[in-house]
């Protein structure tokens, strides 16, 4: 079981309120991702749930029981830290066994569970090494192993992949998702990378300046961002925002159109501009179009290889059904 409920939770450091009153429910078995720019309070929120920080006011319930004043060790949660936080003076085996040793399990049971976790995580060959002798990905697995042996009510991940290189990150992302499918335990995952959020989450919580901008499934957020912040944060490359006459035509203060929802051609289309930088990835092509009279640059994503070059004048057609409209306060219009 692992349902976590936050009820009017706030957190202040001195006079600075880093979490404004916040309500949130994470269902049992859910993979929830806290995402937001750095300094938005997502890590603080995770640490409040973990019990590593006290809430200033409000309550945290775990499985319906008030856990607000329960020390971290007693909350039944396991955490994987950004730096992995492995104990450098202990072997991998002892690292993974540490929580079991603290819980007072007997040696045989400790060993059984460590072996089991090591098998799941492909660490069996490394059990007698020290963390310093492992690669980044392996250390990450040890940290996860240390978390899973406890059979916690929920896993907390604090930007666990940010210290890995790009290729390894994709691999670990898949492994964590697999792990979630297999264990079916609640996971809360903090990241600043919206790609990780989109690919892993059942539920994304977008945070900004200590409050929740929007909660929803990845595709909910992609299709119907509640405001300009979420619209700009979710999706890559970023959504284009256009103000002024073009927006007013649709009865909005600002309109947003995603780069992948703009078609380009040599001659046809209501908008036109000059190609600046173009990025050819093979699978897609990104154009940064200037002199459109709409915004500084309009980013366009075209499928496959499209042969426009720097300085070419091109025409663009937005897909009318996926234009997002926002009012002067930045809120989504129906």
């Amino acid at each position: 079981m692992g349902q976590i409920t936050l009820n009017q939770v706030t957190k202040s450091f001195g006079d600075v309120e880093v979490i404004t009153p916040l309500d949130l429910t994470i269902e049992d078995g859910e993979f929830a991702v806290f995402v937001g720019p750095s300094g938005c309070g997502k890590s603080t929120l995770l640490r409040l749930i973990a019990g590593l920080e006290d809430v200033t006011s409000g309550a945290i319930n775990i499985d319906g029981k008030n856990a607000t004043n329960v020390p971290p060790a007693k909350r039944g949660l396991a955490m994987v830290f950004q730096s992995y936080a492995l104990y450098p003076h202990m072997s991998v085996r002892k690292n993974i066994a540490f929580p079991l040793r603290m819980a007072g399990l007997d040696k045989a049971e400790q060993n059984r569970r460590v072996e089991q976790a090591a098998a799941v995580l492909n660490l069996t060959d490394y059990l007698d090494r020290r963390p310093g002798q492992l690669s980044g990905g392996q250390r990450q697995r040890v940290a996860i192993g240390r978390a899973i042996v406890r059979e916690p009510a929920a896993f907390l991940f604090d930007e666990p992949l940010s210290n890995l290189d790009a290729a390894l990150r994709v691999g670990m992302r898949l492994e964590i998702s697999e792990l979630h499918k297999r264990l079916n335990t609640t996971m809360i995952y903090v990241t600043h990378d919206q790609v990780e959020a989109m690919t892993m989450a059942d539920k994304i919580v977008v945070l900004n300046a200590g409050h929740i901008e929007q909660v929803g499934s990845p595709l909910d957020l992609y299709r119907a961002p509640r405001n300009l912040f979420v619209a700009g944060f979710i999706g890559s490359p970023k959504m284009n925002f256009i103000e002024g006459a073009e927006a007013e035509k649709l009865g909005a203060h600002t309109i947003g159109i995603r780069p992948e929802h703009i078609a380009v051609s040599e001659s046809d289309g209501p908008w036109s501009g000059v190609v600046g930088v173009s990025e050819h990835l093979g699978s897609d092509t990104f154009f940064h179009v200037h002199d459109t009279g709409l915004a500084d640059t309009i980013a366009v994503r075209a499928d496959g290889e499209v042969g426009f070059r720097h300085g070419d004048r091109i025409h663009m057609t937005p897909r009318a059904d996926v234009i997002h409209k926002f009012d002067a306060q930045g809120m989504r219009l129906p």
Binding site: A73, L77, M79, Q82, S83, A85, Y87, F98, P99, M102
Partner: peptide, 13 residues
């Protein structure tokens, strides 16, 4: 790193 001590705390130490 403080995180290591926090990890120990999470682990029930």
């Amino acid at each position: 790193p403080g995180e290591i001590l926090e990890a120990a705390r999470m682990d029930g130490a």
